[in-house]
């Protein structure tokens, strides 16, 4: 009895988190499921059960198809490019050189402020008008004509992805760097005695030992990439047309702005499933990879 009382005294501590989490996360999730199968419009209190009709409509809505396709390409492209740049960057920043700390700070800093703010600044650099810095530089050094960085469908996608890479690559380099610093120097000394070149050491010691860091970094990049909103929103507002539209933007516009709650909720649920499936798949595959190479 006394033991039981004591146990209950502990359980009170769970009350605050269970309350806020259930009301502000779990309940809305379940409600999304329900709404996705209705024709609720946010205004009339009456609504009908429509089964999976909203899910079918997702595939016929050109804006939504655009949004999903750009979001997926963005998530995959940023993950690949950032990973390919962050690892060599981390290897370099792990060396001793005079401006090392300065460089670490320079690469790291862009990941600290809001993406919205920084993307607006990039809007200035990529602007087609006379103050557009990039066009100005390209014109004066290479004699190139004005490029529509943000209004050509392909260039707009590339620009959005490049700005995202600039903003996040340092953060991920710092993550890899932290793991690099945990690698014992003994491995390298032993390899050097065996006559392994620096390149071979990186290939056979460093990269395998970075596998756990890679699993985490890629997971953060993929999930963060799927949730992308601010950078394309600030750079292109989703344009030209709907070329750089994102899933988040679809949910906000179709749901909150247009009151198509059923359709937007169906999008939200599909999004949830995409995030779930990709995260599960990626983590499983990469953890297997960790086991294999270590």
């Amino acid at each position: 009895m006394k033991k039981r009382m004591q146990s209950l005294q502990y359980q009170w501590f769970l009350l605050p988190i269970l309350t806020v989490y259930s009301i502000f996360t779990v309940y809305p999730l379940l409600k999304s499921f329900v709404l996705s199968m209705t024709d609720f419009n946010g205004i009339s209190k009456q609504y009908n059960f429509v089964g999976l009709a909203n899910y079918g409509r997702l595939f016929r809505d050109q804006t939504i198809i655009s949004g999903v396709s750009f979001t997926l390409s963005y998530a995959i492209a940023t993950t690949l490019i950032i990973t390919l740049l962050a690892i060599p960057l981390a290897l370099i920043l792990d060396n001793k050189f005079f401006t090392r700390n300065l460089h670490r700070a320079i690469f790291f800093f862009p990941s600290i402020p809001s993406g919205l703010l920084l993307a607006y600044v990039w809007g200035f650099i990529l602007s087609p008008i006379s103050s557009g810095v990039l066009n100005k530089i390209l014109k004066s050094t290479f004699g190139l004509s004005t490029q529509p960085w943000l209004s050509d469908p392909m260039l707009a996608k590339i620009s959005v992805i490049m700005v995202a890479v600039w903003a996040a690559v340092g953060w991920h380099a710092i993550l890899y760097l932290a793991f690099l610093q945990g690698i014992s120097k003994d491995y390298y000394e032993a390899a050097a005695i065996d006559g392994a070149t620096r390149l071979k050491q990186i290939r056979h010691i460093t990269l395998p030992l970075l596998a756990p860091a890679m699993t985490v970094s890629v997971m953060l990049l993929l999930t963060g990439g799927l949730k992308v909103f601010e950078i394309p929103f600030a750079l292109t507002k989703g344009g030209p047309g709907f070329e750089t539209y994102t899933i988040t933007q679809v949910i906000v516009m179709r749901g909150v702005n247009e009151g198509q709650y059923g359709l937007a909720s169906a999008m939200a649920i599909v999004f949830f499933l995409i995030v779930l499936a990709l995260t599960y798949f990626q983590v499983t595959v990469m953890q297997k990879r960790e086991e294999r190479i270590q």
């Binding site: 502000f24 779990v26 809305p28 999304s32 949730k227 899933i247 749901g255 939200a268 995030v275």
Partner: peptide, 21 residues
């Protein structure tokens, strides 16, 4: 387990009911 499931729920998925709430 119930609390940890929260990691997998994106804000975007809860956004519309949250707005209603």
């Amino acid at each position: 387990t119930y609390l940890m499931a929260g990691f997998l729920i994106p804000f975007q998925t809860t956004l519309i009911p949250l707005f209603e709430l």
